[in-house]
């Protein structure tokens, strides 16, 4: 159990380091960095490499934003596997991500509860 926590820490930290390198060395804005990471996660799943990473690192791989690209691609691929080329299209409309629905829901609740500060981000 402790070893799971350590691997989650190390792998999650390393993915964040990749993001930091994008921001500092390649001078990308946070939005560009996050988009790049999402595309990266999606491509890794295309090669079938992201699921093993989740098996290895648990939350270290599911919490970073890369897992968002992975879960979308995974849904589309699962549907494509069943129904072929048309499955790619139908699969795209079936996949959801708990991250997005949670962000929408808690965004509205947050706007309802909290008052505006000078800057919140």
């Amino acid at each position: 159990m402790i070893s799971s926590l350590v691997t989650a820490f190390v792998v999650g930290g390393l993915i964040c380091v990749i993001g930091q390198i994008f921001m500092d060395v390649f001078k990308l804005t946070p939005a560009h960095t996050l988009s790049t990471l999402v595309v990266l996660g999606s491509i890794l799943d295309g090669f079938g490499l992201y699921e093993p990473l989740i098996d290895f690192a648990g939350a270290g791989a599911t919490v970073p934003i890369t897992s968002f690209g992975n879960s979308l691609t995974h849904g589309a691929l699962a549907e494509a596997e069943k129904h072929g080329l048309i499955g790619v299209l139908t699969g795209m409309f079936e996949v959801t991500s708990s991250g997005i629905s949670a962000a929408i829901l808690f965004g509205v609740i947050g706007a309802f509860i909290f008052q505006k500060r000078k800057t919140t981000y």
Binding site: P52, L53, F56
Partner: peptide, 9 residues
């Protein structure tokens, strides 16, 4: 084993 988990399935 920790590092064999990549091949879990």
């Amino acid at each position: 084993n920790r590092f064999d988990r990549f091949n879990k399935t």
